[in-house]
Design a protein around this nucleic acid. Structure first.
Length: 305
DNA sequence: ACTGCGTCCTGGGGGC
DNA sequence: TGCCCCCAGGACGCAG
């Protein structure tokens, strides 16, 4: 699933190839892909044709491309299985893949393809709105604006405002400790801290040796610091490796997979030996999905120090 | 305001 | 072999 490292990898690929190219045509091949656009596919087309993306910005798992001179941006969320593929003019003439949802044509004959098997992803053109002071994730924003659908998304752990050891990180920990729920739910809440999905939450919890149901307020600031540092480290390592590819659904903008899956320590490893202690990793029901942990390294009911 | 659950969707894989 | 059901899960809407 695309989480922060995968989206960051894709952002980099798009940033190198898309800004400055004028959109000449938009074909929405599946209405669900534009369900978040008021006015649907027709409005996406109207607002996008003729526009020129001028940058590619990411916050958490959201990507957006501000459109020059419009105070609007093309916003994309990849959901579980979304891919963004930059096709040169020759590749753009190849047969459409089975799950091609949106194709955006540029004036040079190249195209941007939004491919999404499970249709949890979406795209829309949305207004850029001023970032409110005290926006989720901390004060001191550098961005002049966020797309309206992203305004409630908190900063992520790779945001300089939340850098490890910074005042922003300390303020984040204070906010997270105030939540009346378990630490994994907090990690997954995109309005608390963004970019973390089930994979990196489990990997970070394993690395920091924490149980996912530990109460947010019961974890000391020091241990929260260790936990967030661990999640950040796992994501940074995955980003350096080009993003996880634990299944075939994730690919970068050129269609290539990453190689980080071999490094996973907890996620998806039920029954396999913990890489630290050898105890079999267990899979447990969590919020209508799964959570993976080592029962010896991450025991329940551990008291805060 | 906050928390947590149900829902959307598709294809792969396991079980019978 | 074939079919059916379960499973994966990000984010949002809504109930409590």
């Amino acid at each position: 699933m695309p989480e922060l490292p995968e989206v960051a990898t894709i952002r980099g690929g798009l940033a190198a190839r898309v800004p400055g190219r004028r959109v000449t045509d938009v074909e929405v091949r599946h209405e669900r892909a534009t369900r978040r656009q008021p006015g649907g596919a027709a409005d996406v087309r109207t607002l996008l044709v003729g526009a020129v993306p001028e940058a590619v910005v990411r916050r958490g798992k959201y990507l957006w491309l501000p459109l020059a001179g419009t105070r609007r941006a093309l916003v994309v969320h990849l959901g579980m299985s979304g891919q963004l593929l930059v096709r040169d003019p020759a590749a753009a003439r190849e047969p459409a893949p089975a799950h091609l949802r949106i194709r955006v044509a540029f004036d040079d004959g190249g195209e941007l393809w939004f491919v999404d098997q499970r249709t949890f992803g979406h795209a829309l053109v949305a207004p850029l709105v001023p970032t409110p002071d005290g926006a989720p994730g901390g004060r001191g924003s550098e961005e002049p604006a966020l797309p309206a659908p992203v305004a409630h998304i908190a900063r992520d752990l790779l945001d300089p405002v939340l850098a490890a050891g910074s005042r922003g990180r300390a303020e984040l920990i204070a906010r997270l400790r105030g939540r009346r729920t378990g630490i994994k739910r907090v990690l997954l809440d995109q309005s608390a801290v963004s970019g973390i999905g089930n994979i990196y939450a489990d990997e970070g919890l394993w690395s920091a040796r924490e149980h996912h149901e530990t109460a947010a307020g019961a974890l000391t600031p020091a241990r929260w610091r260790i936990l967030l540092d661990a999640v950040e480290a796992v994501m940074s390592d995955a980003l350096a490796a080009g993003g996880t590819s634990f299944d075939a659904l994730y690919v970068n903008v050129n269609g290539a997979s990453g190689y980080f899956d071999t490094s996973l320590a907890a996620y998806g490893r039920a029954g396999k030996a913990c890489r630290r202690c050898g105890e079999p990793i267990v899979r447990e029901a969590f919020a209508n999905r799964s959570s993976f942990r080592c029962p010896r390294c991450q025991p329940a009911g551990r008291r805060p120090r």
